Each structure stands twice: as C-alpha cells, then as structure tokens.
Simulated scan of single mutants.
Amino acid sequence: MTDQSIQFELERGIARITLNRPDKLNSFTESMHGALAEALTQVEASDARVLVLTGRGRGFCAGQDLSERQMAAGAVDLGDTIERFYAPLVRRLRALPMPVVVGVNGVAAGAGANLALAGDIVIAKQSASFIQPFCRLGLLPDTGGTYVLPRLVGQARAMGLALLGDKLGAEQAAQWGLIWQCVADDAFDARLVELAEHFAAAPTKGLAFTKRAMNQSLGHTLDEQLDMERDLMRELGRTEDYAEGVSAFLAKRQPAFKGK
C-alpha cells in the first residue's frame, strides 16, 4: 500500500486497520478513502476472523478534512462524496462476515464518530469523546449518523447530539449505550488486544450470522425475523464449529474453533 494514511496488518487471523494521519486527527481525504477501500478489499479476500479499526495519535478521526474542500473550485457536491466514499465504507463494514472491533483512542468527530459507530463492538478510552458537529456547518449527520444515533440512544438524545453538536465523553457514551465499553486510558491497548484475540479464536461464521441477523432485524417484523433465525440456524447446524462446540461442551474442554 503506497498511501501511508492507512496502515494495514494481518496476523494470526487478526486484521488491523489504523487511520494514520495523526497530525490532522486522522481526518479523511480522497486518497485516504482510496487506501482504506484497498485495505478492506484485502480483509475481504483474507482468512481474517476479526477486524480491528483504530486511529494513531491523539484522535480517532475528525471526519472530513475540510481543507481539501476549500481547495475545490466552485460548489462542492457533498452528495457525491457520500455516494462514492462514506456510504460504501459503512456498507462494507456492516457486511463484513466477521466482528469489527473499533478502538476509539481519542476524539471521534463528524464522519469519524459515525464511522466508529459502524463497528460491531466499540470501545473507547476514558479520555475520548464523540461529537456531531454537522449542525455548526449547516449539515446533517452523515456516514449513517441519522440511522444509528436514534437506534442506539433514542430519539431525544439523538436529537440533542445532532442539533446541538455538544461533546459526549466516552464514559457517558457507554452509559447511554452508544458504545460497548469505556476503558481507562492505560488499559485501552491491552483491552483491544484481548478482544482481537478472543474473536480470532471464536466461531466466526456463527458471529457473522449473528451480526447479519441483528442488523436486518431493524427492518423486519417478528415473523420475518423468526423465519430468518430458522434459516440461519439450519445452516449453522451443519458447520464444523457447531460440531466442535458440542463436542467440547460434552467433553468439558475448551473448543478449538476454525471459523468454519
């Protein structure tokens, strides 16, 4: 990968993508979007069983690099930017057949905050914060923000975050259910490794199907969801990991899942 704004690693079933523009709080440029898309292509083609996404430096991601907008001549088509970059990014993360663990190491603002919320398990340093500053620019929360915020924290809190643009600390974000866990700063790196290693040894297909079912439940009736559970469980019942899980349970030993 020639663009160093994204760093990609793959080892022992763990794929790691690190946003790497620390001097700009990892804010997005078009070339950075391209590098991230390339990294996700590598994840999709690999034998990874978990993706860990985090940022380098004191911020996770400050959203769009607005200096790139200033350099553009004439009016900017923000809808085109969503269509080409942010929407495909969210869709790919939600569709990955593995858990996506997001480690919010610092401020997550704008599209950066909503990128974090596209993950499946989101943890944040105690010193981190989440900000929806779109209202200060005459915009609305993109990158899935208007979708996930009311579903995670309810309509009233989502409206407050979106219309006021106030900073939300990681501890309160966890209390509100916006993220999974707020972690002490000095324990953050170890917790991220712990989660990555846990999922790398887990029954990946079952987790992928759980992710799919949870995501699709938001638009399903109960009957539709019950039918989906039936169909997915039927397929999972034929997997090697299910057979191994049952065998390990009966033998009172730790299972050795292969992700198949």
Rank of each mutant, 00 (worst) to 15 (best):
K260A: 14
A111G: 15
A37G: 14
I121N: 07
A62D: 12
G79D: 13
F8G: 02
V52L: 10
T29I: 08
E240T: 13
G34H: 08
L192M: 14
V101T: 06
A256Y: 03
L149K: 02
V193I: 13
G145R: 03
V122C: 02
C61W: 00
K24V: 09
V153W: 01
F257M: 07
F28W: 14
E30G: 12
G63T: 10
L36Q: 01
G138A: 08
Q254I: 12
D80I: 10
P150Q: 01
E11S: 15
L117I: 01
F188A: 02
K24E: 12
E244D: 11
M214A: 08
I14V: 15
M98A: 04
T204A: 12
S31K: 08
D227H: 09
A109L: 04
A45W: 01
Q155C: 10
L78R: 12
G74S: 08
R151L: 08
A208Q: 08
D227I: 00
R238M: 11
A243S: 01
R191M: 09
G237T: 00
V193W: 09
S127T: 07
A213I: 09
T210V: 05
L117R: 02
Q64I: 13
G245C: 05
Q175W: 09
D80Q: 15
A158R: 10
Q254Y: 12
A111V: 06
E30Q: 14
L19E: 04
F188G: 08
G103V: 05
L232I: 14
F8A: 09
G169A: 03
A256Q: 15
A248P: 13
R238H: 12
V43A: 03
L139W: 12
A73W: 03
P150V: 06
A118S: 14
P22H: 07
E11N: 15
M233I: 09
A45F: 08
M71P: 00
E235I: 08
G169D: 15
T18K: 01
E44M: 00
L236S: 07
A213E: 02
P203N: 00
P141K: 10
L40Y: 06
I131Q: 11
W180L: 04
R94D: 09
L222H: 13
R151V: 05
D227N: 10
D189S: 13
G74W: 01
L117D: 00
